[in-house]
């Protein structure tokens, strides 16, 4: 486990990964457990359907806003906000910590005195972030599938998987941006701050653009749009949207080692 930078990076996150997983499982279980008590109660559905458009825009996950079906319920309660939020926080933290965290802790000098190139170091660190997020995605999907079965919620595994994959891709996009910022500046706090601000801006843009005609054409700029646009809980994934998110991940990931390799490391 400790014989590579990738291995050590995974070794280091084993505890925090456990806590993240616990949080995701707990939240998913709670949300799904409530489902049997709210489904088929017309009053609740009516209440939600009478939400103002703005609120619907901020709590919808692709497609139309509906509360009475499993897909609509999970979209509103989980995938519209909490699931991407949890994964984004984890990904941005992991991405920023990877290089900048080690640089600020002062261990990077000693690490790079070993026969490992900066490019390889960055790629292994990126690999660790990807594996961590993939792991959290699997935890999310497993928690959804198991609790949906227990609660008798009828929604296909493929739909749950599509939404989970989309959420992981969205998180990884901002995680890769945080990684890029950390690798190119060496400042962890700055990387977290800028990546988080970008995520919030993207979320707001996507939500507001669905309400305001004048800026609707800007919607595709936001990764959140591509996260939800195919309405994964109803219709699965669409290659175009997946490719946009994957493209952000790839570009940020490819630029990171190059910029990291060019600069002076902080003392």
């Amino acid at each position: 486990m400790l014989s590579s930078v990738l291995g050590r990076s995974l070794h280091e996150i084993r505890r925090s990964f456990g806590w993240w997983a616990l949080g995701i499982v707990g939240y998913v279980a709670l949300i799904v457990a409530v489902w049997p008590t709210v489904k088929g109660i017309p009053a609740i559905e009516k209440l939600h359907n009478s939400y103002p458009e703005a609120l619907k825009a901020f709590t919808s996950f692709g497609g139309s806003f509906e509360f009475g079906t499993p897909a609509g319920y999970l979209g509103a309660e989980l995938f519209s906000f909490i699931a991407p939020l949890l994964l984004l926080v984890a990904a941005i933290g992991a991405g920023a910590r990877s290089i900048a965290g080690e640089e600020e802790a002062g261990t990077l000098d000693l690490l790079l005195a070993n026969p490992i190139s900066r490019v390889r170091l960055a790629l292994e660190k990126l690999g660790a972030v990807a594996i961590e997020m993939l792991g959290l995605g699997i935890v999310l999907l497993a928690a959804l599938e198991v609790s949906a079965r227990v609660a008798g919620m009828r929604i296909g595994f493929d739909k749950l998987a599509a939404a989970s994959v989309s959420a992981v891709l969205l998180a990884l996009a901002f995680g890769a941006i945080a990684f890029l910022l950390g690798a190119s500046t060496g400042r962890r706090g700055r990387a977290i701050g800028i990546a988080s601000a970008l995520a919030v801006a993207a979320y707001l843009l996507n939500s507001l653009a669905s309400l305001i005609k004048e800026i609707e054409s800007l919607r595709p700029i936001s990764p959140f749009y591509h996260y939800a646009a195919s309405d994964p809980l109803h219709s699965g994934l669409q290659a175009g949207h997946v490719l946009v998110l994957a493209g952000i991940i790839l570009v940020a990931s490819a630029a990171s080692p190059l910029l990291f390799d060019r600069r002076d490391l902080a003392v």
Binding site: L2, D109, L110
Partner: peptide
């Protein structure tokens, strides 16, 4: 290094195994 910073959460042996692995 002059300002020697090590992985605080590792043991000495783990650090040595890590660097031995890289080498």
């Amino acid at each position: 290094p002059g300002d020697l910073r090590l992985y605080e959460r590792m043991s000495g042996g783990e650090l040595i195994r890590h660097f031995a692995g890289l080498r």
